[in-house]
Design a protein around this nucleic acid. Structure first.
Lengths: 229, 229
DNA sequence: GCCGCATATTTACAGTGTAAATTATTCACA
DNA sequence: TGTGAATAATTTACACTGTAAATATGCGGC
């Protein structure tokens, strides 16, 4: 085989094909067993060829994580937009339910985002942050909407440690203007749904109710009752 | 070097030494980069020698997870026993705070338990369950104490899906007698603290309050207010 | 004294990511 | 149109990984 294939036999977009194949393998055996050589094998090329498109395996994983966040954000935005802005609790409920639904539909993507799928890999927050903020910013926006309407119930809610407000500045930049209180409350809501969902995906939770989602529904309703006045 | 070292130069307890070395490496570079060969190198033996003590790498990891759960359980029990049984909210607060404290003290152990540290490794729940139930059973016991005192506030709390009660039978067996409602409530409490702690360990949360623990304290107090009447 | 078991070593194999050198194709410009 | 540079792949090589198989040595019991 010639070192450089003629344009006819060449993948028109190898960069995308590599990512697509990676997703297929992740969907099968999980993100942990992702292998550059296996991807290359499936694409009929050799492993080092991938280095023309991704600096190393970590760069590929980072691209996958960003894709996953984008897919996640799409689901969040769709749920958000399906409810009229006036229905504050409806939007919180819709985005909350969509959070779990997306995670259960794409458990591998969820673990790719929130787990530590690859040995030695640490997510470069600087690169993934925009996509992450877009996705998680939806809930932030919902909470901000509640606060702007004067219906956010919080008393003595803790404030971020002095000197660490900068962590929230990035959020504002990517997720739209939002009060620091809204951001803080959104964080704790995020933590609650994330806790339940990650345990469920891990198989540590038995299903509740006839649909298996009763515990999650209970928690979402509990969040609505606690934070919306 | 002789295939079998004379008893003088031999480790008196190689099984334990292997585990200890593994812990040291995990404490350094994290659980992801754990390597049998590196452990052997550090102990001055060859890698296959480890197979005399652990069937394969997964078996070693499983032993480490059980150890981590045991350490975790010790911390939970210590916090539990430090508060008199009559102080229901005090016990819930103490175990809740100890949960985060242990996780921040041993983040690698926490990730070993709740993450997916090794490629292709899936925790054999059947083996880890006893140690896990001992640790997580402390909160179950606290909630059961609240319920037995008639001070558990729940309304319309969801019930486990019909046919899945068996998942709770195991809990009862290892974590002591407890009402199925107490187990269910303990699960959702567990999910809440786990959500916050895992995000904090992941670096996704900025510190709150002067001590950095204000958001967690807020959540624990919120749990106490919500579930104790 | 010898046999057998336990405990290691050596060797080997199939993987992995990735660096370096090489080669063929394609494109831009004189 | 021809030539040189850039591009996109190859082959080769290295240092790892877990682990299976065969082998050798130390030690305790008959």
């Amino acid at each position: 085989m010639s070192p450089r294939p003629s344009k006819a036999t060449q993948h028109n977009n190898l960069q995308a094909a590599i990512k697509a194949t990676a997703w297929r393998q992740i969907g099968g055996t999980g993100a942990a067993t992702l292998s550059l050589r296996a991807i290359a094998r499936e694409l009929g090329i050799t492993a080092p060829a991938i280095y023309n498109y991704y600096a190393d395996r970590d760069a590929l994983v980072t691209a996958l994580i960003i894709d996953a966040y984008t897919s996640f954000g799409d689901a969040q935005l769709a749920a958000h937009d399906a409810v009229p802005a006036a229905d504050l609790s409806g939007r919180l409920r819709a985005t909350g339910m969509a959070y779990r639904q997306w995670a259960l539909t794409y458990p591998q993507r969820y673990m790719l985002i929130f787990g530590t799928p690859i040995p030695g890999y640490v997510a470069p927050h600087a690169q993934t942050f925009p996509a992450a903020a877009r996705a998680l910013g939806v809930i932030v926006g919902v909470v901000e909407g509640i606060r702007a309407a004067g219906r956010l119930r919080v008393e003595a809610f803790p404030q971020v440690m002095p000197g660490h407000e900068q962590a929230f500045e990035m959020w504002r930049q990517y997720a739209g203007e939002a009060d620091i209180l809204s951001l803080s409350v959104a964080l704790v809501i995020w933590a609650r749904v994330h806790g339940l969902v990650s345990l469920e995906i891990d198989g540590s939770l038995p299903p509740f109710g006839p649909g298996g989602d009763a515990l999650y529904v209970y928690e979402v309703e509990s969040i609505i009752r606690e934070f919306i006045v």
